[in-house]
Amino acid sequence: MNRINQKLQEDKKLLSIYFTAGYPKLDDTASIIQHLEKSGVDLIEIGLPFSDPLADGPTIQASSTQALKNGITTEKLFEQLKDIRQTVSIPLIIMGYFNPMLQYGVEAFCKKCQENGIDGLIIPDLPVDVYHEKYKAIFEKYGLINVLLITPQTSDERIDFIDAISNGFIYMVSSASVTGSQSGFGTVQTDYFKRIADMNLTNPQIVGFGISNNETFTQATKHTKGAIIGSAFIKHLTANGIDTIDKFVKNILA
């Protein structure tokens, strides 16, 4: 069974952490993954940097720009991940934009993911219908779970379709926004979390965007399976480097 599905069966709220590959330093990728696993994180999203990350706010965008300056490439990321399965068993998901994958070759990319211990992909600008028609079979051939997004504006009908073609979890964008844009949730968000929970979907939901601390993590996971932290973690890395990752995680899970 895919490591993501295994993890989703555990009877607990899951914490997923996003970081940008090649940031703060080019070769930090493997040790960030190891630190995160040791600190009790459940899932990791490895950001493959893109020059024009449309769905990201300034924090992740700046880390991507820096990572590219540091010399990260698709090939380099796969090299960094080559031996990762000798040290960690945590589910690993690559999150990236579609163009770098397209240039690598979608099938070649998926194959490399499988060879290097990747369990799933999140590609915000690969639309659901294009994925469904053209790429689903390839992803499945290499054992990759494609994580699809929904937002507060997504219609119930479309959510049902997304649920039907998903085989891991659904990435629930907390509010209409790019990453890192807000702090704290209001009733609009909690109502939305509850509405989706009441739909009794096949795939569990994990909330992303706007989660930064213990309080927002607790709020976000009240009606869902887990939550994803990205920009807040990048900010922590920018300020503190990679040595105090466990402190950051302990504060979230406190």
């Binding site: 915000p124 937002t151 790019v178």
Partner: peptide, 11 residues
């Protein structure tokens, strides 16, 4: 062509 957009823009 096509519409390669994040889900957030779909509606």
């Amino acid at each position: 062509g096509g519409a390669y957009i994040p889900e957030m823009l779909y509606p």
